[in-house]
Design a protein around this nucleic acid. Structure first.
Lengths: 205, 205
DNA sequence: CCATTGATGTCATATACTGACATCAATGTA
DNA sequence: TACATTGATGTCAGTATATGACATCAATGG
């Protein structure tokens, strides 16, 4: 018999989600979360740096997946197409949108959670920019393409989760990309030559 | 004789900046800031919702200025051009970049301050999107153009404050816009530095 | 002359978070 | 077997942020 029940981390996440639903985010203390999970407040802070973080556990995985998808894109793919391709690939593996509804409601209602959400996206943006630089895209193009990708993802995700009629997240992403190209005044065909200036030197995937 | 020294708010801001420089952000308590400003901790929290906010006092003005500039743009101006025009106009009125250096260093070194910075930009993005909607731009185009504008501003501001050679902030903004157009596939050109001052980047050959 | 206002102070308290140290089953190892 | 080590957890004390309730008192205006 194990000394402790397993999955302490998951128990904390579940307890937190339940309690946030039942009583709201600010009227739930970390101590209450820990108690429901059969642990103590001190242990909560060993798993999560702060109270907000319990809602953002898996954000690192996404980062890794997207960066890999970008690295794997053909060398001829343009920066933004590589980014959006990576986003689509990651999005295809997302759980059904109903799993995000409660969480998104919480975030929308609490600025401190929005802040955390935003910094996770900023971190994702940095990872994407880095993946582009490895492909030979120079600054500030890499950062701008990354930020554009994040903008696309934000709007697509928002509409996917919140929209009335269910539409595929990858489809939302493609739609947002097309719309961005319209508002930026882009007229060129979607797939163009790589704008990288070091195309020939990129690593062979 | 007035009952209290005037400019309590500014005194708090100045005291905070001084102390953050002297001892670092986390080793400065709100009580110390208040004391240096000749006030009490409680009064600090009457002027600022939290400790971070003391570094973000004027962000509301920017929002208003940009929104107005967008509303004032000719009806024929494209959404993104209207946004960037607004940003340029606001940027032209910025204090010299050395006034931002210390603050940006602080923010860069403290995730909690980055979070606050990001949510201010998100708020600016919402205001811009709203101004575009008033102009008749529909969703998701309005939000995407707004986010694209923020992306441009972020990169331009970063390079303006941190860059080695001083280059006009409006010029940085125009350069970032040109680069974004390249990277979204608006023009097919390499990501070379555009040395021309005002014109958009053309295909170099 | 007096009531009101408003910026500030005082005090009490909740909650988030951290450091230091204790506990003790499991696990390895002489 | 005996014993040292490890690692997840608990206990406890403390600090800092943030908020509510109430007090103060010069200035202001009728």
């Amino acid at each position: 018999m194990a000394r402790w029940e397993p999955n302490a981390r998951n128990r904390l996440v579940d307890a937190a989600l339940e309690l946030f639903q039942e009583r709201g985010y600010d009227r739930t203390t970390v101590g209450e979360i820990a108690t429901r999970a059969g642990l103590t407040e001190r242990t909560f802070f060993r798993y999560f740096a702060d109270k907000r973080e319990v809602l953002f556990g898996r954000s690192g995985d996404l980062e890794k997946g997207i960066a890999e998808a970008i690295s794997g894109a053909p060398a001829t793919t343009s920066p933004l197409d590589a980014v959006v391709g990576g986003l689509e690939a990651a999005a295809a593996a997302f759980p059904p949108r109903r799993d995000y509804r409660a969480r998104q409601r919480l975030i929308a209602a609490h600025p401190e959670l929005q802040e955390r959400d935003l910094i996770k996206l900023a971190s994702l943006s940095s990872a994407i920019a880095e993946a582009l630089r490895v492909r030979g895209v120079s600054e500030p193009g890499a950062s701008l393409a990354a930020e554009a990708g994040i903008a696309i993802f934000k709007i697509a995700f928002e509409r996917w989760v919140g929209g009335a009629q269910p539409r595929d997240l990858p489809a939302q992403i493609r739609a947002a990309l097309a719309e961005l190209r319209i508002v930026t005044g882009s007229t060129a065909a979607p797939t163009r030559r790589n704008t990288s200036k070091k195309t020939g030197t990129r690593a062979a995937d």
